[in-house]
Design a protein around this nucleic acid. Structure first.
Lengths: 349, 349
DNA sequence: TTGAAAGCGCTAACAG
DNA sequence: CTGTTAGCGCTTTCAA
């Protein structure tokens, strides 16, 4: 049972293929109501679905959006993928071509090639490497690209859109929350490798400490794993870093992690060491993964407005292909602190 | 800067388009080595990539695999998506078209339509609803479909392949582990809605109880949430069911959950109720999510061989399109118990 | 060993 | 209002 073509429909309805095409594209003004109905009837009878491939060869468009993430095994990226698919379908009826890049530049470049070859014109790239040269190049080749979770200096002449949460503010909020509980010896935990978003979070964190009346101290501790794209690696790193924290003299009373997976690992490692959260150490994560509500204790974290960001990304990525003169911009979304049970006043000072 | 076409290359190399096509498809026997080299040179010079759309219109194939999952926000499906993408790329150089079905039959049907329209010929469907009629229909329409995590009666004349872990054995293993620790009052936790895989797990669980010398008792408790496709819903359900467990008279000494997300919620709920795991209740999950190693206590669970299953699914789904006479079959993979810290001997009897 | 030409299914001028 | 026709970029006979 192979698919019916536009010719089959035309033959059955006793009209020309162009009339069928006009019906499919709802150009009612070009046909009499009667013919229109007759063609529709034939379409239904045959269960005709236009071949998108053929259509695309003609129009140059395909209703598909590319999405590149480091790894869907990381719940954060899984949630993002879900939101983006939902937005793309709702806003434009687009489907999603998904690629896991493993934060590997050559895999990412390969994906760009394939997207172009498939005729896909819009792509959203999540948490890419520091270098965006390959994206700019892809934009030159006609791809509409949106970069997520990276900010870029304004007026940089970039050809791509940037959408991100206000990571600076996220770091600021985390520190602020801890300070308000009376903590004065804080630590910020981050894997090795400074992405833009990580740097922003750290800066916001440090700024808040600096803005405080004075006596608070803070350090940034970098994990030993160079690149963690999955989720177990990240959690494992967090668990390993627990001992690093425990050995500090004096031990900090609070730590904020650059993301929730790291916090989940940290919680586990701390527990293994016999340290209680929040009695001995307070912990603040970032992302508000849905599992963050079910850690022990429930993780206080900084939530990012995922659905709103997804809508914006899809809007820009797909919208640009019909409006190529849209000027690229940066769009920043505000995070919010979600208080659960991993923060308390410090027992020691 | 639009893409170079086969004509551009032909012109530059001073040959016909068919020669370029032959070079692209490595038909060395059809050209002299010299011409071949000249064409290759032109290809590189122009950075020519063949347009897959045009190629497909001719050949009818596109190197893309459809993947339908309930929701990538559920870490389990995120991991599966990752493994499948990896296999598809490694084994066939295929890309992935991803769809979240939310376990909604009409969304699933819509995806099938679109896959066909896009010219995609292979699809893997994860954890679908009870009814597979729509899949059989899609198979009739020329789709090569693989159903994951559903077994089907042998010799059913099905047109689709079935790949699944041995869920019966998974249930059996979980019960066996608990019994070996001396538990005799067990409970099996499952959301409302019996999918095939859930039923199999329950049956395996009950069988092991039944096979025991005798004094062990078991019940199956069904959650009140009809359909949970995300992950927070599942964990929330687990948390809510903790009180149901706590109120039982007598309280069971061990519970196994149909998946890890449920277990994670349960752990959290139990903790909130002041019940200790494993001292007061033992818990065994299923799936071995990578976060299962970082719960408190570490979750003892039944692991499924994801990578091997992904390879098999991809092999069948894509392999069938070039071998349409391949007879559909069921392939079962063996799970294994992963022991961590959520099981201990019961304090009470 | 190479090239010419006929489509794959659809859209969009352009004619009638 | 309806039909004819020329491609979109590629593969693939079939001739030369």
């Amino acid at each position: 049972m192979s698919m019916a073509t536009i010719h089959d429909v035309a033959a059955l309805a006793g009209v020309s293929v162009s009339s069928v095409s006009n019906v499919m594209n709802k150009r009612t003004s070009k046909l009499s109501a009667e013919t229109f109905a007759r063609v529709e009837q034939a379409i239904n009878q045959l269960g005709y679905r236009p071949n998108r491939i053929a259509r695309q060869l003609k129009t140059g468009h395909t209703p598909m959006l590319g999405l590149l993430v480091p790894s869907t095994a990381n719940p954060m990226y899984g949630q993002i993928a879900l939101e983006i698919e939902k937005s793309a379908q709702k806003l434009f009826g687009y489907r999603l071509l998904l690629g896991n890049t493993h934060r590997n530049p050559s895999e990412e470049a390969g994906m760009f090639q394939d997207l172009l070859a498939f005729g896909i014109r819009s792509v959203i790239v999540v948490s890419s490497m520091a270098d965006e040269a390959h994206m700019e190049e892809a934009a030159l080749n006609g791809l509409s690209v949106v970069s997520f979770d990276r900010t870029t200096p304004a007026e940089s002449g970039s050809l791509i859109d940037h959408i991100a949460p206000d990571n600076f503010r996220a770091g600021y909020l985390a520190a602020d929350h801890l300070l308000s509980y009376g903590h004065s010896h804080l630590v910020f935990l981050v894997p090795r490798g400074r992405t833009v978003s990580r740097a922003d979070k750290i800066n916001g964190f440090l700024r808040r400490i600096h803005d405080s009346s004075g006596c608070a101290t803070a350090e940034v501790i970098e994990g030993s794993v160079a690149e963690s794209f999955g989720d177990s690696e990240l959690a494992e790193l967090g668990a390993a870093m627990a001992s690093q924290i425990a050995q500090m003299q004096p031990m900090p009373t609070a730590v904020v992690t650059v993301n929730d997976m790291l916090a989940i690992g940290l919680l586990s490692g701390l527990h293994r060491l016999g340290l209680r959260v929040p009695e001995d150490v307070s912990v603040v994560g970032m992302d508000d993964l849905s599992i963050a509500a079910f850690t022990k204790p429930g993780l206080t974290t900084v939530a990012m407005p995922l659905a709103a960001m997804a809508d914006a990304m899809v809007q820009r990525a797909i919208g640009r292909v019909s409006q190529p003169d849209m000027v690229p911009g940066s769009f920043i979304f505000q995070p919010a602190l979600v208080e659960r049970h991993s923060v308390a006043a410090p027992a020691r000072k």
